[in-house]
């Protein structure tokens, strides 16, 4: 008998008493009534608490802010679906690498790149969570992981208050990364320290009118 058949058989034997299944009570919050300004304020508060850099800006100011965030960078990678207009103010001295399905940067190349600029799919204000789902304006997972500095664009129209509000807007079978602040650890005396293996600097640009 295969291990699969045996384990499934064991489960059926174990459940011979046919445990009764109750209807799952879902009285937790699934809708919110916060205004746009309140949503922004909540998300900013959470991200600042995680020690992320946060600016709330207008769409027209994206190029200026992206350029200023990349002030100290010598190179930047961006996914092929990103609006390249957002990078137009980045100085010529900063090398630009587009990562696309046909021309992907190698891991050592990503490691040698100072920063990454991506958009994001949806953000949950209450927990300060930014969700990336691999859409062309966010790219594959490695590009937002290996460079040590992540500049992430969060359109105001993609902010919700509660996690259950984000779920219907997600395509779960895409590879997802939920980001709540820069990498961190609490492994030594349960004291939180920001900056371990993932990007040690996370700059979030929350964009009105986008």
């Amino acid at each position: 008998m295969s291990a699969k058949d045996e384990i499934l058989g064991r489960i059926r034997t174990a459940l011979a008493d046919a445990p009764r299944v109750e209807e799952v009570p879902r009285s937790y919050r699934t809708t919110s009534s916060l205004s746009e300004e309140e949503l922004i304020e909540l998300l900013v508060d959470r991200l600042v608490d995680y020690k992320a850099g946060v600016d709330v800006i207008d769409a027209a100011d994206i190029p200026t802010f992206v350029a200023s965030k990349l002030d100290a960078a010598h190179s930047v990678v961006y996914p092929h679906g990103l609006d390249t207009g957002w990078l137009q103010a980045v100085p010529e001295s900063v090398q630009r690498h587009m990562d696309a399905p046909g021309s992907m940067l190698t891991i050592p190349e990503l490691d040698a790149t100072s920063a990454v600029v991506t958009s994001s799919a949806i953000s949950v204000a209450e927990s300060g969570t930014i969700i990336l789902d691999g859409e062309p304006d966010q790219g594959r997972r490695a590009i937002s992981l290996v460079p040590d500095h992540h500049v992430c664009i969060v359109p105001v129209s993609t902010i919700v208050q509660l996690l259950p509000e984000a779920m219907p807007r997600l395509e779960v079978t895409r590879p997802q990364t939920w980001i709540s602040g820069p990498s961190a650890t609490s492994d030594i005396e349960l004291e939180r320290v920001e900056g371990v293996h993932g990007p040690r600097t996370l700059d979030v640009l929350i964009v009105r009118g986008l």
Binding site: V124, T129, R174, P175, Q176, T177, W178, G181, P182, G198
Partner: peptide, 11 residues
């Protein structure tokens, strides 16, 4: 924490 820094989902 309100949320852990990283969650990965893959299918």
């Amino acid at each position: 924490e309100r949320m852990n820094p990283y969650t990965s989902l893959w299918t």
